[in-house]
Amino acid sequence: MTPSSVMSTDTVAPRDRAAIWRDWVWTHFGGLESDLYGDTVFDGHMAATQAGSVVLTKLEANRHRVLRSPRLARASERSYLKIVAPWRGSATVEQQGRQAWVRPGGWAIYDTTGSYEIDNPERVEHLIVMLPKEQLVERGLKLEPLMARHVGGVSGIARVALETMRSTYQELPSMSETAARGAGELIVELVRLSLQELAGRESAATQLEAFRDRIREHIARHLRDPSLTLDHIAQALNCSKRHLHNAFSAEDDTPAHYILRRRLQACMHDLQNPTHAQRTITDIAFAWGFNNGAHFSRVFREHTGQTPSDFREAMRRRPLARETVRSA
């Protein structure tokens, strides 16, 4: 067997690489928007292959983000669970108000039938694994609470699953069709066992995840309120500010930075939405909790690499998204 598709920007003129990459990501992953943090220099490579019904893709690229909107999720023809397992770099998975930060040696999982966002804030080398969702739903596993979770990879069954996914990708070229199909079935079973273990695990780590979820849910409900502060969150959740910081320490993040990032993401979504074309940038920013236009412009540029007006104009000039979505 050989990889079913190989894509590289090495053969593309530098000025065309960003547009070509976005088109590849859209086509290969079935309706997935992407942006490059406003960077003008980019290179990326994807090599995909299949083990039975399981699709495995090795992705190497400069920093970038991908986004699946609720509309695109609803338009999908096939449902997948998707795993990101970094060989190099890191990724942040956000879905259903939860967030998982994953580095080499770990993996995180999410559901393509719902909206999500993946941030790759540095150059990455990832293994992306797509498993048909129905193969896990049929086993009676309650999936929703397990999405956007850091499943593991350091020890136990999650490590066996990670090593199997990696070795399967590497050895597929020398496998027969029958062996490849069996390897895909094994991956599905190991992922199921990993999720089953995660669902039943009662530990300080999972309690901390639950508390982090409560914090994020509170932030989501009050994101538009400019008075949303750590003091207000601590009072609402009946905890100390130190406890709030401890909840985010495992992800090298802070509650304040999380609030800022979510507000910026919300503004980005509105700025690229044609239905908000008549609204001013200031109106959008203030609607999402910012109360100083100069501060908003500065942090927006730090986050995206572009000014808000340049970002809006770039999104306006981009070709309209395809209406037909083929898979995940």
Rank of each mutant, 00 (worst) to 15 (best):
H257F: 11
L198W: 11
V12Y: 09
A61E: 03
D39R: 15
P226A: 06
Y169C: 04
T57I: 12
T113M: 10
E177P: 02
H295I: 09
A18N: 14
R316A: 14
A61P: 04
A266K: 10
E33H: 10
M315E: 15
G106I: 00
C239H: 08
I215C: 08
T307L: 11
E33W: 07
H126M: 14
P308V: 03
T229C: 05
P274F: 09
E185K: 10
E189N: 13
P104W: 04
A204L: 15
G305C: 07
L228K: 07
I157A: 09
L172Q: 08
K241F: 04
S53C: 07
E33G: 12
S90G: 05
D23Q: 15
G152F: 02
I109P: 00
R71W: 12
A314T: 12
A220F: 07
R17F: 04
A18M: 12
A61H: 01
W24K: 08
A294R: 14
L193R: 15
W101K: 09
T254S: 15
I215R: 03
S76I: 02
L56S: 05
S115V: 04
V299S: 06
Y258I: 07
I83S: 00
G289C: 06
R261N: 10
T254W: 01
R192V: 07
V102E: 01
D253W: 10
R68L: 11
Q135T: 14
R212I: 06
K58L: 15
R88F: 03
E197M: 13
F211H: 08
A250V: 12
E33T: 10
K133H: 09
Y37T: 03
A91G: 07
S76F: 03
L244N: 07
T2R: 15
I233D: 00
D252I: 03
V6W: 11
F42G: 05
W288Y: 13
T113R: 13
P319F: 00
M7Q: 14
A18Y: 08
H218F: 15
V160G: 01
